[in-house]
Write a protein that binds this DNA or RNA. Structure first.
Lengths: 150, 150
DNA sequence: TACTTATAAAAGTCAAAGAAAGTCAAAGTA
DNA sequence: TACTTTGACTTTCTTTGACTTTTATAAGTA
């Protein structure tokens, strides 16, 4: 596959959210239908892209008329950074850090330049460490960079 | 073999880069397919020809839709940075990196903010690595940050 | 009517399969 | 000897689907 479906779905949800005051509500099945994918794909996107540590609040209801609601938590720049810092409980992959940095750019927490430097300093190829060290070193660097931003 | 395949691949990537503003993005498998070689040949070319010393920054993603991205900085237009890059012949201590960063601030190559970020990302305490790894990781991070300053 | 039960319509979970790129060392070549 | 090519094996991220849980509503019963 050429383009990642997950990213299309992520972008779509963010677009909807922009249009309606940082809040979006949808049926999981409808959205899956719209993208011609299985419903659990939506869960994957939510858990990798719209988790609390990324600054979102998610709730849902099952059963007839059930749906999923995502609300972006509105925080000042410093609070946003503090929120991320507090919510990091385990080590992060390059991808996870990348998604967080991308969000920070989108929400004007950091400049493009700072974002670029942060992703360089947390990049797998750059670190080039054995697997048992990679994620922990990356996470330490990332956290310290965040602290530095406050 | 008469002509080294590695050189053909190198030339091809550079050609693509010329055409598109010093940036290329491709699938490793596609490129390998194009040259009828094994995918790991691409890694060999990248690691031997597209290093920071030569002015390149490389990043990649695995998994579905994964790819490799290479960007280049114009050597001649960034004299000072290339000068620093070339002057690094062995691994650097925190102190040595610190001095270089300070010089860059004095010469107005980087802002205070960026300088601070660079020091955090190359700091001993932050990296918290065994001695045999510390300096090499620091140096890789520093070099790659340099490439990305522009 | 009030309460219980069945049915169907959601969303959630989790692990397997798939799709990429990375690593490393052996073999080949100049 | 130094550089290049190859390929088996690993790691990372995404997609899929079978199975589970929850909830609203309709149907049945006292």
């Amino acid at each position: 596959m050429n383009v990642r479906l997950s990213e299309l779905i992520e972008a779509y949800i963010k677009e909807l959210m922009e249009e309606s005051d940082d809040f979006v509500e949808f049926g999981r099945n409808e959205l899956a239908e719209h993208f011609h994918c299985v419903p659990s794909q939506i869960n994957y996107v939510i858990s990798t892209r719209f988790s609390p540590e990324r600054g979102y609040y998610v709730e849902s209801r099952r059963g007839g008329g059930g749906n999923i609601r995502i609300k972006r938590i509105e925080l000042s720049q410093n609070d946003y950074i503090m929120h991320i810092l507090h919510s990091i409980e385990s080590n992060l992959s390059q991808n996870e850090v990348g998604i967080m940095i991308q969000n920070m750019v989108e929400y004007d927490i950091v400049s493009e330049e700072v974002a670029r430097l942060m992703s360089v300093a947390t990049n797998d190829k750059v670190l080039n460490l054995p697997n048992d060290l990679k994620d922990s070193v990356r996470t330490r660097i990332f956290k310290n960079l965040l602290i530095n931003l406050i």
